Deep mutational scan, measured.
Amino acid sequence: CHSECLGNCSQPDDPTKCVACRNFYLDGRCVETCPPPYYHFQDWRCVNFSFCQDLHHKCKNSRRQGCHQYVIHNNKCIPECPSGYTMNSSNLLCTPCLGPCPKVCHLLEGEKTIDSVTSAQELRGCTVINGSLIINIRGGNNLAAELEANLGLIEEISGYLKIRRSYALVSLSFFRKLRLIRGETLEIGNYSFYALDNQNLRQLWDWSKHNLTITQGKLFFHYNPKLCLSEIHKMEEVSGTKGRQERNDIALKTNGDQASCENELLKFSYIRTSFDKILLRWEPYWPPDFRDLLGFMLFYKEAPYQNVTEFDGQDACGSNSWTVVDIDPPLRSNDPKSQNHPGWLMRGLKPWTQYAIFVKTLVTFSDERRTYGAKSDIIYVQTDATNPSVPLDPISVSNSSSQIILKWKPPSDPNGNITHYLVFWERQAEDSELFELDYCLKGLKLPSRTWSPPFESEDSQKHNQSEYEDSAGECCSCPKTDSQILKELEESSFRKTFEDYLHNVVFVPRKT
């Protein structure tokens, strides 16, 4: 048989008469490798580009789960590009990614509803959504962080984005990388972005840091009482949809009607710091009717980097990364020049730590249904340095008659930039024990000054392991946590139920 035959053949030295091919099969003959313009397919066939392209389009058009959109890589027609490569849609070739590779997620039936953290986790790592997304989240724990972890990498949506009755959302900033909504599939009414009845939605994105392009379709905003109209108009300008909307697409009466839409800028007039305090004062603000001013709200939190936005980490279910302080308005003076500047002394802060701070007014709604208010920009203030805590785990070892090696770990709280350490030492008198000992005694162990690591005695271990207080009263049991108490109650309830079950099964009433 021919060298490319495997198993047997019907005619000697003829690659077209093989029972099976050793390498690849091409047009009725066995070959060692697939010549151009053919590609290896499933490690035994040679196919042309049209064959591989037909497989790709067949799966793409069917949208069946589990099928493969075949691509070409290293002269092979394979189910998908290997790690580190992405497909070129024009020629199906796998090309190296520039940075992290995109991950295209194809949605069944063309859309997916995100109504819980669990459903959001199914899209973790996706960068391109081939379909439409509907966000409908009523509640949950730590929602802002969970949504950002699972949806934060999405850069492109081919269909539309719909935010509907998501009472738990305060902001859409968890879509931190969303840059493009194509609108290839539109919501009824030709809408590519749809926001309806979101009672706590206050911000779409921080438009000073976020760009969003909507290729096709219109915007729809109705019944978002805490979303200011200025935020919607800003989205029109940034996304390129200005002029597409009709009169009733953006409701003037049901958007922002319960919001404090600040239209003035508060400026800080005085800032002073110490290692654990920050004193702030800002310019006074009074609405047209000074009785509408209820006070100020001061927001602050630790910020290692200057990239904080107002609604980071917030949701309507209680999660809030900001510390909020309510401040009463100052006494009002008739003389504008003698107006008191409101302020606040922030206490209990960490030394040498940068804080993000902003302040906003708290006002009631005027009778004319106009909203007044003022808010400052987010500023960054760093507390002063102070003395560091003591170095940890000092170790001293003498390696000769004239040297001592000293080692330690950095302090747990540096409280500033540590530039150097101060080492103090003092000579001590020799131990009298060394002169009084009889060095001729056998088995004498000389006193040693070398360091030995501390260890816990058996008594201390027994005390720590004991669940009861000892007789001397030195140790006591740790208080039980809520989960331990709940577990004990469940076990007790189970024992009672099981005992009742045994009584009912074992003891049967005697027939009379």
Rank of each mutant, 00 (worst) to 15 (best):
K103A: 09
V104R: 04
C105R: 01
C105W: 00
H106F: 07
L108S: 11
T113L: 10
I114R: 00
D115R: 04
D115H: 14
D115C: 03
T118A: 02
S119K: 01
S119C: 13
A120D: 01
Q121H: 14
L123D: 00
L123C: 05
R124V: 10
T127G: 05
T127P: 04
N130W: 02
I135P: 00
I135S: 00
G140S: 13
N141S: 10
A144T: 03
A144P: 09
A145G: 09
L147F: 11
E148C: 05
A149M: 09
L151V: 15
G152H: 10
L153K: 13
L153T: 13
L153S: 11
L153A: 13
I157A: 01
G159R: 02
G159V: 02
Y160V: 03
L161A: 02
R164F: 13
R164P: 05
R165T: 15
S166E: 01
S166K: 00
L169I: 10
F174M: 06
F175D: 00
F175Y: 02
L180F: 12
T185W: 10
T185R: 12
T185D: 08
E187F: 12
E187W: 15
G189S: 06
N190K: 15
Y191S: 11
Y194T: 11
A195I: 13
A195N: 12
D197T: 12
L201P: 00
L204M: 15
W205K: 03
D206T: 05
D206I: 04
D206S: 06
S208F: 13
K209N: 11
K209D: 02
H210R: 14
N211D: 11
L212N: 01
T213S: 09
T213H: 15
Q216V: 08
G217W: 01
L219E: 01
Y223G: 09
K226W: 15
L227D: 00
C228S: 02
L229M: 06
H233A: 04
K234Q: 12
K234H: 13
V238N: 13
T241F: 09
R244M: 14
Q245E: 14
Q245V: 07
N248V: 09
K253E: 12
K253A: 07
T254K: 11
G256T: 01
G256F: 06
D257W: 08
Q258P: 10
Q258V: 12
Q258G: 03
S260V: 09
C261I: 04
E262M: 04
L265V: 13
L266E: 00
L266P: 00
K267L: 08
S269M: 07
I271Y: 06
R272L: 11
T273V: 15
S274Y: 10
K277G: 15
I278H: 00
I278P: 00
L279P: 00
L280M: 12
R281P: 00
P287E: 07
P288T: 09
D289K: 03
F290L: 04
D292H: 15
D292V: 04
L294A: 06
F296S: 02
M297S: 14
L298T: 02
Y300K: 01
K301N: 13
K301S: 07
K301W: 05
K301G: 05
E302K: 09
N307A: 14
T309R: 05
C317N: 10
C317G: 11
W322I: 02
V325M: 05
D328R: 09
P330Q: 11
S333V: 07
S333L: 05
N334W: 06
D335K: 11
Q339C: 11
N340K: 05
H341R: 11
H341W: 09
P342E: 06
W344N: 11
W344C: 04
L345W: 15
L345H: 06
M346V: 04
G348S: 13
K350I: 03
W352S: 13
Y355K: 00
A356V: 01
I357V: 12
F358R: 13
F358S: 10
F358P: 00
V359F: 03
K360S: 05
K360N: 14
K360V: 11
T361H: 09
T361A: 12
T361P: 01
V363T: 08
F365R: 14
R369T: 10
R370V: 10
T371L: 13
K375T: 12
D377T: 12
V381A: 05
T386F: 13
V390G: 02
P391E: 02
S396K: 10
S398N: 15
I404L: 01
I405G: 12
I405R: 09
W408T: 00
K409L: 09
K409Q: 07
K409M: 04
P410S: 15
